[in-house]
């Protein structure tokens, strides 16, 4: 049988055209970088299986075209994704401003409890920087989303970003499962809660004084 995995997580990369979504994904999946710019046609995806706390997690990462003419196709993939990475270019003010629009777009199209993360890409190009790290952090705090500055070219924080997002999704999953325990109904539920604690651990721990 083929190599199996425990969980399949679907991630999505969105952001303006040319911010480096494809490069980030290329770095993460192939650990390589291509200097030339090839605009993504519509959608694409890459797969990488990572090891997360002893579990094999298969990441299916969707790369979307930033160009507006593919917007109808790309938005169709929002709903199926468990985590979304919003990418902007630190050398491009406009792409940073558009993050707000992208978030609004997520709110309209994606599942409500999708995990989000903001990436400020191309942080190696310090000389051309237009958006400071502080502004990125400020925005992330505003929306209560995790933020990290990355560089696909220098392979900076790319792994970290994906691992963090995957771990956050996994943590959310565990939390959800725990919360799905049937909540005790009203009335005599306190009684039960007390009774629960009273169960003896084993006969060994019992007191022989009766």
């Amino acid at each position: 049988m083929a190599k199996t995995y425990d969980y399949l997580l679907k991630l999505l990369l969105i952001g303006d055209s040319g911010v480096g979504k494809t490069s980030i994904l290329f770095r993460f999946s192939e650990d390589a970088f291509n200097i030339s710019f090839i605009s993504t046609i519509g959608i694409d995806f890459k797969i990488r299986t990572i090891d997360l706390d002893g579990k094999k997690v298969k990441l299916q990462i969707w790369d979307t075209a930033g160009q507006e003419r593919f917007r109808t196709i790309t938005t169709a993939y929002y709903r199926g994704s468990m985590g979304i990475m919003l990418v902007y270019d630190v050398t491009n003010e406009k792409s940073f401003e558009n993050i707000k629009n992208w978030i609004r777009n997520i709110e309209e199209n994606a599942s409500a409890d999708v995990e989000k993360m903001i990436l400020g890409n191309k942080c190696d190009l310090d000389s051309k920087r237009q958006v400071s790290k502080e502004r990125g952090e400020q925005l992330a705090i505003e929306y209560q989303i995790k933020f990290v500055e990355t560089s696909a070219k220098d392979s900076l924080n790319v792994e970290y970003a994906f691992f963090t997002l995957a771990r956050d999704i996994k943590a959310k999953m565990e939390k959800k499962q725990e919360a799905s325990n049937p909540a005790p109904r009203s009335g005599a539920h306190q009684l039960r809660a007390n009774e629960q604690q009273r169960k003896p651990t084993s006969w060994l721990s019992r007191c022989s004084l009766l």
């Binding site: 005599a188 009684l191 009774e195 604690q197 009273r198 169960k199 003896p200 721990s205 019992r206 007191c207 004084l209 009766l210």
Partner: peptide, 16 residues
């Protein structure tokens, strides 16, 4: 009407 039967124990929780 809910009835529960318990075993009384001192020094440790009652047994259900």
């Amino acid at each position: 009407l809910t009835l529960t039967v318990w075993d009384k124990d001192y020094g440790k929780p009652n047994d259900f």
